[in-house]
Design a protein around this nucleic acid. Structure first.
Lengths: 197, 197, 197, 197
DNA sequence: AATGAATGAGTGTTCATTCAT
DNA sequence: AATGAATGAACACTCATTCAT
């Protein structure tokens, strides 16, 4: 029982630390985030941080994993309006942009860290790999169904168009380029036409 | 003449420093670049750095300005094969990707720094603004000539497609995603189709 | 209890640092005092300095506050020989000079720092203000009691005579002007006569 | 003739440097005075400073010597109102305070530097020695003439009272303690009474 | 588990002074 | 004499991480 209580307490501390870390990373970016401030926000003693995380990179990695899992969940939950490739593409784009916006501040830090941390770059590449694969499979399927012309290379198209969507999200929600809701449809139209739909 | 000789010496030192800085930034990224190493590479005393640059940010900014100017020059020099929108788009993409590749390592650092330095972010946004504007004008012109459908929004399309090309360059040359020469053509085809050409 | 022990350790470190700082400031003056040397004297790691003090100015300020408090305590403890204004003035002068002498080396640094640090200048002015006020009140009291002529302006006299005593202490104990014990009496006689006693 | 012209030119440069130095020292104090700023003010090349002065201390010393000479000249020029010891003391005090005020900003720096530079401290002590001696001689004379009681020790009184005047000047003109013109008379009255006049 | 004091490596920047023209 | 570029020693401060209670 003491065991259980201890674990519960530890879990609470850990959770507080995670929440504090997210706040601090979002406000200051990775480089200017101080462990001491994370502990302050968590209402936890300075040294306790290291009871739960190996180092600064470790909390960050955990936060990103959590965010990425949430992102996929949100995307899966996105409703499909109508059917056919266009509806699917619209859904994927809408879902991605919505999920990105929700996490924009942490996403910004993710992109930042991927820039100088080899480990985080791997995570970044892996996440993109998943998107690329998924879209490649879809395009390939449409192609086999005769909905997409044969001269489209599914892999290249998937990479380029996922990149377009992904970086547009960054441009809109991190760099704050002005945009409006209609732009999401425009984006989908560009995507569809690009692969000949 | 003495005047000139003096300036010449200073110019030489400054140049050496700039070259050393580029090397070091490319090898280590901005954060791990040490002024002392820059000076070593330049064969110049530590303090001389500060004779020519206010600080680390200042050399970096100068390097980026220089690179950006070079990039535009290279792009202007790219030959046009054939005519019509498709040839123009192909040319722009080819030029951009080639120029990016030439400067890939410094570009990577540019993207990194834009991630945490407000000043560099401004430079970054300004540079992209130029590309967006240029492509928007082109699309608008084709639209007026009846070559591009009316339902394409020139601004949104320009931003999205420039982003696609730009981020693909990063993906290929910085993140080292595999790609081959044919992919450039694929990219151009996607671009053209996306705007209905 | 653990709490107490912890605080006790911190208090010990802090005290060692304070003692080390006093030594170093006294030997080298403020400008040539190095944090590293303070830590060496305290037998403490470099970084520990910053666990206890914000910066060099902060330790110094604390040292000065402590010294000033001690100075007032010593002065209050000075015995009064006889009564009447002359005895009181003699006592005050004796006390001040004795207390100054005890702290002469740190006093010298205080005067030095007050010369270029606005914050320390404030402390300096405040401390003098206390002396001025006290002597002004005394003179005013004697004046009301008919012991001091009406044409003496209590404030001006207090400021000028406190200044005389104060700067004489500096001259004797910091600048090492030769002087002997009888000079204290001379000083008191000058003070008394100056205000017509 | 070239010789002469050269010398004249050098003299001009030197003078400009001296004026620039005074400005900068007065504005920033010794520690924050930069050779480069002195040269800027003088409209002279950076390196030329060392053609005329051995180092920063050297210009400062020269400035102080010049100021001290001027101070004595101003004091000698002060008119004597009436005769007798009181008139002489009034004159000396008036003269000193006036001369101090004229040079207050540089005086402040002089006091500052005397605080950490052994050489400047010597100059400081020497200058005060002159004042002490002069006042000691005067008091001794008046004592021999029966104008001052025998129990006054001329040396101690001279040192203490010169100190009073000198530090009051600092207090008024450097530390900006409020004071008015009548205070000069008060000061003189305190001085006179102190020595029994 | 929690606490918070202790640790110490790491580096950008300043600026007086020197020196080659 | 004048110029101004080159030099390099010197140092405070930060903060992630460790560790004794």
């Amino acid at each position: 029982m003491t065991q259980v209580r201890r674990q519960a307490r530890a879990e609470r501390t850990r959770g507080a630390l995670l929440r504090g870390a997210r706040e601090v990373f979002e406000e200051r970016g990775f480089l200017d985030a101080k462990i001491s401030e994370i502990c302050d926000r968590a209402g936890v003693a300075y040294g306790s941080f290291y009871t739960h995380f190996a180092d600064k990179d470790a909390v960050f990695a955990e936060l990103i994993d959590e965010m990425l899992r949430g992102l996929l969940a949100v995307m899966r939950a996105e409703p499909l309006d109508g059917d056919g490739p266009e509806a699917r593409i619209a859904r994927a784009n809408r879902a991605y942009l919505r999920a990105y916006q929700t996490n924009a501040r942490l996403m910004a830090v993710f992109e930042q860290v991927a820039t100088f941390s080899p480990a985080m770059r791997q995570t970044y590449l892996r996440a993109w790999g998943i998107f690329y694969d998924r879209q490649e499979r879809a395009i390939r399927g449409w192609q086999e169904a005769g909905l997409v012309p044969a001269d489209v290379d599914p892999r290249t198209a998937a990479v380029a168009l996922a990149t377009m969507i992904g970086r547009t999200a960054y441009t809109w929600f991190v760099l704050d380029r002005p945009h409006d809701d209609g732009d999401v449809e425009q984006l989908t139209r560009l995507y569809c036409r690009a692969i000949g739909i």
